[in-house]
Design a protein around this nucleic acid. Structure first.
Lengths: 136, 136
DNA sequence: TCATTCTGTAATTATTTTTATTACAGTACA
DNA sequence: TGTACTGTAATAAAAATAATTACAGAATGA
C-alpha cells in the first residue's frame, strides 16, 4: 500500500468524530485533507460498506459516524483500505524451473499473513476515540 | 511499500543461502526471480551496504552471504528495503487552517512509528535460516 | 414544482512511482 | 587481451495512483 488511503480514511473519521454527528460534506472533508472530493466520496462509500459511516444524499446531505468512536478500532479502518500484502509481492511470476522460484511465493505469503496478523492485532488495540483525543 | 523490493531481497538471500557460499551471478538471480538483472544488482548493492552480502567483481564474480543465515533476521532485510511508512501518507499537505488538518500528520507519524516497531519486532524473531529451511 | 445542493459513480486524463532497458566504464581472470 | 562479470547512470516503458470532468439521482425548501 503505497497509496494514502489509510491516512485519508483516518482523516475522514477523525473529522466526522470532531463534528459530533453533524452531517459533513465531502467537499468540506476534501478541503481539510487537500485531495479531490471524488476520492473522499469513494472512501466514504467503502467506509459505509464496512459500517463505519453513514451518508445522506441530497441537499444538506453529508456523512457522520455510524457508530461510536470508542467502538471503532483502527484495524477496522485498515481492513477497509487494505488491498495488497503490506510487504509487497513481485508482480512477475518467479521461474518455476528453479526450486526456490517455484516455492517462494507460497512461503512469502505465509510470512506475510503472519506479519499482517501482528499488525492488525496492534491496530486493534487503538480506537478512533483514542486517536481523536490527541487533537484536544 | 507497493513495490516488490522486500520479496526480491528475500528471494536473493534465499538463493544465496541455498548455494552455500558459491559465487552467484546477478543474471542467475534475475532469472530465478524473473526480473531485470540491473534491479538485482542494485538490491545486492543495498544488501552489501547493510553487511548482508558480499559481491565480487570481474570474471567468475558474483555474490554470497556476508554472514551466516542464522544471524540474518528478517527485520534487517526490511530495514534495507524500507522507504516510506508502511501505511502510506498523503502526499498533499492537509489544510493548515483546519484544526485537524494542521495536526494530523504528526499524530499519524506517531501511530506509524509505533506500528512499524511492532512489525519490526515480529520480523526480528525470524532468521533467513528459518525461512530458507522451508525449501528443504 | 423546481432550482439548489448534495451524493454516487463512471469515464477520462494527468501525474507519480515502479520496473525495464540500454549503455558503458571498471574489475578480475585465464 | 578477450571474456564474463559488477556497478551505475540515464532513459524509456509500464503500472499504479490521483485528479478531473461529467452527469444521474436524491433531498430540501423557497
Amino acid at each position: 500500500m503505497n497509496n494514502s488511503r489509510f491516512s485519508i480514511a483516518i482523516h475522514i473519521l477523525t473529522l466526522l468524530h470532531q463534528e459530533k454527528g453533524a452531517l459533513v460534506s465531502s467537499d468540506y472533508l476534501a478541503g481539510s485533507i487537500n485531495i479531490n472530493p471524488v476520492l473522499v466520496r469513494k472512501e466514504l462509500s467503502n467506509l459505509a460498506k464496512a459500517g463505519l459511516v453513514t451518508s445522506k444524499e441530497g441537499k444538506n446531505g453529508g456523512s457522520y459516524l455510524a457508530k461510536a468512536a470508542e467502538k471503532i478500532t483502527l484495524d477496522e479502518v485498515y481492513k477497509v483500505v487494505r488491498q495488497d500484502y503490506l510487504l509487497g509481492q513481485n508482480k512477475n511470476t518467479p521461474n518455476p524451473q528453479c526450486p526456490v522460484g517455484k516455492q517462494i511465493n507460497g512461503h512469502l505469503n505465509t510470512l506475510y499473513d503472519k506479519t499482517e496478523q501482528v499488525l492488525i492485532q496492534s491496530l486493534a488495540t487503538q480506537t478512533l476515540a483514542d486517536f481523536s483525543r490527541l487533537f484536544d
